[in-house]
Simulated assay, not measured.
Amino acid sequence: MKILMVVPAIAAIYGGPSQVVLQLARSLGRLGIEVDIVTTSANGNSHLDVPLYRWIDRDFYRIQYFDFWNFGDYRYISFKLTQWLWYRVRAYDIVHTHALFCYPSLPAHWACQQHNVPYVMTPHGMLEPWAMAYKYWKKWLFFKGLEQPAIDRAAAVQALCESEADRARSIAPKTPAIVIPSGIDRADFDRLPDPERFYRVFPETRHKTLILFLGRLHPKKGLDLLASALPQIRAELPQIHVVVAGPDSIGYLPKIKSFFKKVGALDAVTFTGMLQGELKYAALAATDLYISPSYSEGFSLSVLEGMASGLPCVITKGCHFPEAASDRAVWEINPDPVEIAEATIALLKDRRLAREMGDRARQLIFAEYTWERIADRLRSLYLTLGDRDRLSRSVRQLIL
């Protein structure tokens, strides 16, 4: 089976959703599925230094980059990618697009409709009410004119959580919405590196009680809520120090700093930028508590990473992980500064409670949320849709 994945941008600066595509492609490839990725060379305000318009072989998949240009909020416009999709989608059994409100998915959907190729859409949280309300009028026009017809004609929507599936079903009742979440590579978490590596790079974090936020810097991530909660936390735990680790692709860092400065806590925060590889895992090893104070998420990869590291995790209901809350593997709260402070203080003052929660979290992730399991579920979806499409084509040929 041959799958084409279409994603607007794949650079690490775009955070979890882009990286999920690479992990999915690699894991599907290991299962014998032939996977190609097409994307743009976007890298924030610059371009990736990569060859364009030719296949690059990676572990178990291929990727091809295309040049692009931006027009205001309408980004990743690539006419060469459009042309390529129009003539090449027929070579694939299924096309899988990632993200809404971005140009590259549009010609992919149109080409699939023209050539009768089934396609799967993954919104990555962009159907959530908070996300839809952000820049509402532009999104409403875009959605009604372009995204709604695409969802209506999709073979399926891959939802990352039940709430996203429910939202998709309410928008397009005739399109199947299947929940297949993100995952982690267990090997990355079997044994975390020595935290000393993180302390050497960020010495101000040494001998502190560390709270880690791991994710891209964006208004929906709720760092304003964490800032508002920090004075109450510091009053009970003076040694607390917050690590904000993530890329800033929209110039949001000055605003975040202003949140902490306003409450007199900027000295208790380290902004590391994006952490990758061993340094990221060393940060997880050094951390006492992971926090995701988000207003809205699709399904946070960094939450899975915090849990897989065996950390006590405080997450909001906007993270859409009720399964973890029901297993007492996380402390789930409303996106509210008082609740953030109370949960954080309770866990950091009761080490046994924190350790037991971290152990349950690690067990849950290793049992249910590894890329091997996720890829197997996605392969089953592809095979089901492929069989259905081949049957449909055979019937049409018989009629003709």
Rank of each mutant, 00 (worst) to 15 (best):
R234Y: 10
V89N: 07
Q276V: 11
G298L: 07
Q158V: 12
G246F: 03
A99W: 15
R197F: 08
D359S: 13
T384I: 01
E332A: 11
D36M: 05
I77L: 11
S380M: 13
P51Y: 08
S105N: 14
G264H: 09
K255V: 08
D288C: 10
T287K: 05
D248A: 00
L253N: 02
A168R: 05
V303L: 14
P312G: 00
H218T: 14
S292K: 12
E339M: 14
S302V: 06
H207T: 02
L146R: 06
P176N: 01
L284Y: 07
P51K: 10
C319R: 04
A285S: 09
Q239L: 04
Q19V: 02
H109W: 14
P337Q: 09
Y369M: 10
F101N: 03
L311W: 09
I171K: 10
A150T: 09
T384Q: 12
S163R: 10
A265C: 15
L223T: 01
T122L: 04
V243Q: 13
P123Q: 13
W110S: 13
R167Y: 04
L311R: 09
F79G: 11
Q232C: 04
D288I: 11
A245T: 07
P254H: 00
R379H: 09
A168V: 00
V314F: 08
P107V: 03
L214R: 04
C112Y: 05
P312V: 06
I56G: 00
E196L: 12
E236G: 00
S394C: 04
G72N: 14
H218P: 10
R206F: 03
W86N: 09
R90N: 04
V201L: 06
A133C: 03
S228P: 06
V38A: 09
M357E: 02
H47C: 12
V303H: 02
E368A: 04
I184W: 03
C161L: 03
P104N: 10
R216E: 06
Q363W: 03
S41C: 12
I10Q: 04
N45M: 06
G358W: 00
G44P: 05
S105F: 08
Y74Q: 07
Y103K: 08
T316Q: 09
P337H: 13
D336N: 15
S296W: 08
D57Q: 15
D359E: 15
G215F: 06
T287S: 14
R351L: 07
L385Y: 10
A229M: 05
T97S: 15
M132R: 13
D224L: 05
A187N: 10
L226Y: 05
G15Q: 09
